[in-house]
């Protein structure tokens, strides 16, 4: 088959664009998975004790009592009370800097790192805290954890659906290109048959051509996607945008390795689709 017979440069460009989108979608899937894993693994061992009270003194007393109980509880790895400055900083996004009055009773926060076993069964700790420090409440981040997991799953599903959709588009384009290639090279196909070529021989030729075009296009698409992803991650880290809410993810070797799946799958999908299309068309038309 002549090079132009399978679409040549235009098909390479389309496969490049498809691979770019597929790589972005797959990168989205991987980065969301990594970020969700990072967030949820932190939450699996983290607890927050919030101590409320009518006065600063009552809060301080309950905080000390809560710390005593925590430090004597099996399964608590660390328990640190945040300073009033640290607590105030947490409220700055809502109240602004320096707007917190000394008369305002700001709850104290105790950050606790616990073993997974304790994290799973907090009943006894809650009872002991309630008895000794009535103003202390245990927040196991359960609601946040479940919402975060659900959001991550949705994001993963969406990214994977986009990836599958783009691969489906690659299949559809391969079908059209293979049919167009056969139509444009009708004379060649006919001659190949007349000199004794089997359908498999012709399908192999077309498949090889599509594999090469797919490899060329998908490598270019992957390269462009890596540049775009690298640039996007760089921008989020330069402080040019408010990125505190974004996960701390990197284009590590592992992520790039997984993205290499894109050209491999693209080549195989385009080549296999072209082969099946050619065999079907030959059986119908010749």
């Amino acid at each position: 088959m002549p090079e132009a017979g399978a679409g040549g440069a235009p098909l390479t460009a389309v496969i490049g664009a498809i691979s770019f989108l597929a790589a972005i979608a797959l990168a989205g899937f991987i980065l969301i998975s990594l970020a969700a894993g990072e967030w949820t693994s932190e939450l699996k061992t983290a607890l927050t004790i919030q101590v409320k009270g009518s006065s600063a003194q009552a809060i301080e007393e309950d905080t000390q009592e809560a710390l005593r109980i925590l430090n004597s509880t099996e399964g608590v790895i660390t328990a640190n009370a945040m300073t009033s400055e640290e607590t105030a900083r947490l409220l700055e996004p809502w109240l602004g800097r320096g707007n917190i009055s000394d008369y305002l009773s700001i709850p104290a926060i105790i950050e606790v790192k616990a073993t997974p076993a304790l994290r799973r069964d907090l009943g006894l700790l809650r009872t002991r805290l309630a008895a000794a420090a009535p103003g202390a409440t245990v927040d196991d981040h359960g609601a946040w954890h479940s919402r975060l997991s659900a959001a991550a799953r949705s994001g993963q599903a969406l990214a994977f659906a986009v990836f599958l959709l783009v691969m489906g588009a690659a299949c559809a384009i391969s079908v059209f290109a293979a049919r167009a290639g056969l139509a444009a090279n009708h004379e060649i196909v006919s001659l190949l048959h007349l000199v004794g070529a089997t359908d498999d021989f012709i399908a192999n030729e077309v498949q090889r051509r599509f594999f090469i075009l797919g490899l060329r296009g998908s490598m270019a698409g992957l390269f462009a996607a890596l540049i775009a992803l690298g640039a996007a991650l760089l921008i989020t880290r330069t402080g040019a945008t408010e990125s505190f809410f974004l996960p701390n993810v990197n284009l590590t070797g592992g992520v790039v390795f997984w993205l290499l799946v894109v050209p491999i799958i693209t080549c195989l999908v385009t080549a296999a689709t072209a082969r099946m299309t050619v065999l079907k068309t030959l059986r119908r038309q010749y």
Binding site: E187, I188, L191, H193, L194, V195, G196, A197, T198, R283, Y286
Partner: peptide
Amino acid sequence: RDALPALRRRIGVVFQEFRLL
């Protein structure tokens, strides 16, 4: 049609319009 390629290989054809690639 699967039987035809083997038969065609036993035939040499000189086409009027050559039909070269």
